[in-house]
Simulated assay, not measured.
Amino acid sequence: MSQDVVRGAPVGDVAGVGSRGARLRYVDNIRIVLTVMVVLHHAAVTYSHVPVWFYTERARDASGAVLDGLIVLDQAFFMGFFFLIAGYFTPPSYERKGPRAFVRDRWKRLGIPLLAFLLVLRPLVNSGSMGEVRERLAEQGVGMPYWLFYVVTWDPGPMWFVEVLLVFSLVYVVVRGWRSSAVGGGRRGARPLRGRAVVAFGAGLAVVTYGWRVGVPDGTYVPVLGLPSPNFLPQYASFFVVGVLARRRGWASSLSRRAGWTGAVVAGVAAALYAPVALLSPSRALEGRGTWQSLVTAGWESAFAVGVVVGVVVLFRERFDSQGRVGEFLGRHAFAVYLVHPVVLVGMGYALRGVSAVAVVKFGVLGVVGVPVCWGLAWLVRKLPGAGRVL
């Protein structure tokens, strides 16, 4: 990959590159922070009351509720933020390469890591579950070969993001094929983003999300695809589109400092107002199925996500638009971290299994030690022949 791009991004091969080829260091720094959040999110899941990870120890003390709250806050925005960044850098990649080369590149840079996880890493992180299943079946006099266990537990794990991003990228190619001036395809001048448009988008997203969750409530599982949060698809798709539009209209540079402060305040107020609903009826609030609690949840998630994105973009653009050698290293290996972090967290989870401590303490140990180990393993993986050209 050429030196004018930020490598290692799960958001396309031009993450961090502006419309004129200038490096957008602040975008790369946001992506680094989001990647750290992914690692910490799954570390929190490990010791929470949400057993949706390859290795979990269900919390047996009150601190588990803290981790549950952290998971809910993360889930409300961070993967949507990833999709927005991906959308932002999709048009210039398409325009530079053309449709055929763009599709080939997407298959290479997204498809190969997805296959690598499914065929190499997933058997490693799921091996402990296989032993537990075999023990339970053996008590009943039943055996299960590994190939059958692999098939019935098929799941792309955290690489579902890459899976969905690949689909979004192909849809973008189709749209651009219909009209040469389709969304994100033109080179029009900047068009400032107005506050009422942001409010209208947030309100519309809340309504669509509420309606979507009537039929796709929390906990819905999509066979084969293995999406862990299909109830968030309206956010993921709309944020990707917003990213495409933002690239075309120069929204990231047009956001004022006042907009950043407003976004931060909106996010904080939304979280504070939602807290009583989440505490009094958490299951109904998160479940969906058309309840009034689900409507409140969709509203706060949309307000919180939009507010955080606006606030963080302005903050990093103004204060964190530079990188030293450490920052460049972290950015270069971020996608590889996303790929390999399950191996690190699951391995460390088993290593800490015998340690007796409250849930939040074990989360802290796993996170503090796990994050640098993830980057170290990512560095080793990218040293493999050809890996640096893909990751």
Rank of each mutant, 00 (worst) to 15 (best):
W160K: 01
W251M: 01
Q323Y: 00
Y150Q: 12
V381A: 11
P217G: 01
G12M: 05
I112N: 04
V39L: 04
T209A: 13
M130H: 13
S181H: 12
T46L: 09
R325T: 15
A264E: 00
R317A: 11
L115F: 13
V162C: 04
R258F: 04
Q293Y: 13
R191E: 15
D321F: 02
G376T: 05
H333T: 13
L170C: 04
P91H: 01
E132C: 00
V337I: 06
E328Q: 10
A275R: 08
S253C: 00
L245M: 14
L295S: 11
R258M: 05
G243K: 02
P156K: 02
I85N: 07
G268F: 08
F82D: 02
V381T: 05
R7V: 14
L193D: 04
L380E: 07
L377Y: 06
G98L: 02
V344H: 05
N126F: 12
L295M: 15
R289K: 09
I71C: 03
T262R: 11
V72R: 06
V222Y: 03
L137S: 06
V371N: 04
D13Q: 06
R258Y: 03
T262W: 13
E139G: 15
G98V: 00
R389A: 15
D4T: 12
D4H: 11
P113H: 03
